[in-house]
């Protein structure tokens, strides 16, 4: 029996140790970790931090679109007072007419519920009519 460890066992242990070492190294360095996640490593230079990386380099994308101009024009247009709109007067007129009709109709209904008009006094009675409604 040889006192040496068998080659097969030695190779397995060495592989595990190497793998652990590499893994710990990768996890310990954030830059490397970010790079592995697909992010660009940030530059250490101070001037590059001021720049907006999201700003499109194509100038046409920064120009105002036609829709924005229309909205601005509408906002800049003078506001018309509510009482100068025909819709306001149409609604107000309808409300007034409706209120008058409601009052008149209510009074007529109440009058009818109270018996309506009394029968006119017959001419032959010579004014000898009395009682309710007379």
């Amino acid at each position: 029996m040889s006192p040496l460890v068998p080659f097969q066992k030695w190779t397995l242990r060495a592989g595990i140790a190497v793998a652990l070492t590499v893994t710990l190294t990768v996890v310990s360095f954030p830059r490397v970790a970010h790079a592995d996640l697909g992010e660009e490593p940030k530059s250490s230079s101070g001037g590059a931090q001021v720049e907006d990386a999201d700003k499109p380099k194509d100038g046409s994308l920064l120009e105002k679109k036609p829709a924005d101009a229309a909205v601005q024009q509408q906002a800049a247009a003078p506001q018309v007072a509510f009482y100068e709109k025909w819709q306001f007067w149409a609604i107000a007129g309808a409300v007034v007419v409706g209120a008058i009709a409601l009052i008149w109709g209510g009074q007529a209904l109440a009058h009818q519920l109270n018996g309506g008009d009394v029968r006119p006094c017959n001419m032959d009675f010579k004014g000898r009519c009395f009682g309710e409604g007379q």
Binding site: C121, N122, D124, R128, C129, F130, G131, E132, G133, Q134
Partner: peptide
């Protein structure tokens, strides 16, 4: 004399 007419509810 004639008729007196009295109206009532």
């Amino acid at each position: 004399l004639g008729i007196f007419e009295f109206s009532t509810f």
